[in-house]
């Protein structure tokens, strides 16, 4: 139970960071984000992504534009805002610190 909880917490934090990073590479469609995340073996279902994207958008880190699609309805393409980039830079630093912290802590462990 405790392990599960910690795992969930860890994933939650990283998920946002990863999504921001993926979007920062350029305009992207939600289901392509899923594809990227699946490649990274991080996310399983699409349903989880939409609330997250909506929240990041409402916080001003993301913006989107509608684009026509060849198959089906128009699609929402997400892109990172300036604010989002700033946040991402901060997260980059934090991530490096975390990696260092974890590696240091794990060093020498069998």
């Amino acid at each position: 139970m405790i392990a599960e909880n910690t795992q969930t917490q860890m994933r939650k934090g990283i998920l946002e960071y990863c999504i921001l990073s993926i979007i920062s590479k350029g305009e992207i469609y939600a289901s392509d984000i899923i594809g990227e995340l699946k490649k990274a073996e991080l996310l399983v279902v699409e349903g989880t992504l939409y609330p997250l994207l909506t929240r990041l958008k409402n916080n001003g880190l993301l913006s989107y534009s509608w684009k026509e699609s060849t198959s089906g309805p128009p699609r929402k393409y997400y892109q990172i805002t300036i604010e989002g980039t700033e946040v991402l830079e901060k997260l980059d630093i934090t991530w490096k610190e975390l990696v260092y912290a974890v590696e240091t802590s794990l060093f020498g462990r069998k």
Partner: peptide, 17 residues
């Protein structure tokens, strides 16, 4: 299956959601 069941959301989603 692709979209995920509600139970899948709960495992991974944020508290406020």
């Amino acid at each position: 299956a692709q979209m995920g069941r509600v139970s899948d959301f709960e495992e991974a989603s944020e508290e406020e959601e």
